[in-house]
Amino acid sequence: MINYLQTKTKELIDSPKLYAVLFISSFLESIIVPIPLETMLIPLMQARRKKMWLLAFWATVGCILGAIVGYSLGYFLFEKFTEQIASWFSDPQQLEQVTSQMQDKGFLYVLSIGLLPIPFQIAMLAAGAAKYSFGMFILATFIARSVRYFGLALLVLIVGNQAEALFKKYKLHTSIAITLLVVVIWLVL
């Protein structure tokens, strides 16, 4: 699947539909597709360096709109379809734990899930189900996804064509470091 995405990404580089496809991909990645957008975004940014900040912007906007849909599903449909919704993304017990933690530390919870390689759908549904503040949810989503996507643009700016290889090589190390940082922040707060 990832090889297919990389091939399609190369075809998109010169397409006039580039931003629309990126926006839709980001939207879908945030609500239903568990394939990281980075596999598409880094090669696009490397090929279109003059437009990499715009690419990061459209990826962020698509994700935020997808997050609004996920939040709305949790807010309006959670009680009616709890078991079905939970089974789409994770086991029901995990979603219930997330929902209870959302009430205590919602902002940090959304922010950390948005930064970590954990399916963001869990945070969206839990925030909606817990009736967590919509404004704070959007702010946390905006910060987390901006850090993620604009961080990739910064990586491309600094290391150029080595960005994709560097990202793949250190993805696990970076995820572990971010996870430890998030855990420390959670424990302190």
Rank of each mutant, 00 (worst) to 15 (best):
M1V: 02
N3Q: 08
L5M: 09
L5V: 04
L5W: 02
L5Y: 02
Q6A: 07
T7L: 07
K8Q: 06
K8M: 04
K10A: 05
K10N: 10
E11S: 06
E11H: 04
P16V: 01
L18T: 03
L18G: 01
A20M: 11
A20Q: 05
S25G: 15
S26T: 01
I31S: 13
I32V: 14
P34S: 12
I35V: 11
I35Y: 04
I35C: 00
L37I: 15
L37C: 09
E38G: 04
T39L: 10
T39S: 02
L41T: 05
I42H: 06
L44I: 09
L44T: 06
M45P: 09
R48M: 04
R48P: 05
R48S: 05
R49L: 11
M52A: 04
M52H: 06
F57R: 03
F57K: 01
W58N: 00
T60L: 06
G62L: 05
C63A: 15
I64Y: 07
I64S: 10
I64G: 09
L65T: 10
L65Q: 09
I68C: 14
G70E: 07
L73H: 15
Y75F: 15
Y75T: 10
Y75V: 13
F76A: 12
L77D: 10
F78D: 04
E79M: 07
K80H: 12
F81L: 11
T82F: 10
E83D: 15
E83G: 14
Q84G: 14
Q84L: 15
A86Q: 03
S90E: 00
S90A: 00
S90Q: 00
Q93S: 12
T99Y: 12
S100Q: 08
Q101L: 08
K105A: 11
L108N: 05
L108A: 01
L108K: 07
Y109C: 00
V110Y: 01
L111E: 05
S112W: 11
G114S: 01
I118V: 10
F120T: 09
F120H: 03
A123N: 11
L125Y: 06
A127P: 05
A130G: 08
A130H: 10
A130N: 08
S133A: 03
F134P: 08
M136A: 15
M136I: 11
F137S: 04
L139S: 08
A140I: 11
I143G: 01
I143S: 05
A144E: 03
R145C: 04
G151Y: 10
L152S: 04
L155Q: 03
V159E: 09
Q162L: 02
E164F: 15
A165P: 09
A165Y: 14
A165K: 15
L166C: 13
K168F: 13
K169L: 08
K171M: 13
H173Q: 14
I176A: 15
A177S: 12
I178A: 15
T179I: 13
V188P: 11
